[in-house]
Every structure is written in C-alpha cells, then in structure tokens.
Amino acid sequence: MISDRLLAEFDSIVRNYPVRRSALIPILLTTQEHLGYLSDESIAAIARYLNLPAIDVYEVVTFYSMLRRHPVGKHHIQVCTNISCLLLGGEEIFERVSKRLGIKEGETTSDGQFSLAEVECLGACCNAPAMQVNYTYYNDLTAEKVDQILQALQKPEER
C-alpha cells in the first residue's frame, strides 16, 4: 500500500531529524500528496514505519485540518471566508463556486473532479477575496473571475 518510491521518500525525510518521530508531519504531508488522503491503512503503515502507536498518528492527523482522512477531488478548492475576504465578498465567492459545481462545503463532485472547502485565513488579505486550488492561489476574486477559473479547470476533461 505504501509504494517503494514513497518509502524511499520517507527514508530521506527521516534523515533530516535527530528523533525519528519528528518526521511524522512531513511524512503525512508527503503521503497525502501522493495518495490524495490519509487512509486507515496509510496511517497504520506510517505508525509502523516510525515505531509509533497508531493512536498517536491519529491524534496528529485529526488535529490538523489540512491533513485529510477522506479523498478529495482532483481540484481541491479552498475558499477563504475569514475577516478580510469576508468583508470583500468571500462568502459570495464561496456561494458562486458552490452553485456552479453543485456541491456544498466538504463535498466532491460525482465525477471526482472538484471538491469544495471553506477555510480560514490563507494569508492573502492584501489581495482578498482569495481562494486556493490545490497549491495554486487565486486573488482579487470576482464572480466573473471565478467562472473563468472553473471553466479553465473543467476544460481539459471536456475535450
């Protein structure tokens, strides 16, 4: 379940830390990047790899909201609704995305392409309202801009 390639990455991460268990969060992030989310199986494998009780890994995974225990869409859209974005229409942006894709907070489209999450501050207050699709930031959003972004993301699959 954990590929040899991923395991090799674990090995190189662990070398960065004097204490083996310190590598836990980077390893969780790497695993999530490769597999999309952290399954019970992955968590058990990581716990074994780091000689940690599985419960310790669950505590960390459930503590951090950016660590996911369920799969998300290919494009994971995270719309900020914290103060600066809220004041400049963040909630409307969220609603726009939600309506266009036909999904609510925490849901994924049936084709597995998009998922939607409402998030706290993305650190982009100077260009609010903002959203993040996977690791790409989109700033100074307007309804039109949102439509264009979504359309561009949808395109390749339509072809």
Partner: peptide
C-alpha cells in the same frame, strides 16, 4: 495498550479510540 487518544482540536477535541 494505547487504545485511547484525544482526537480533533479546540472545542471539537474529544476522547476517541482507533476506528
């Protein structure tokens, strides 16, 4: 025996067991 942990964060924190 490591069955119990504190899951989630802040106001949502609670005692849970492994699935």
């Amino acid at each position: 025996s490591h069955e119990i942990g504190i899951f989630n964060r802040g106001g949502q924190s609670e005692i849970r067991l492994l699935p």
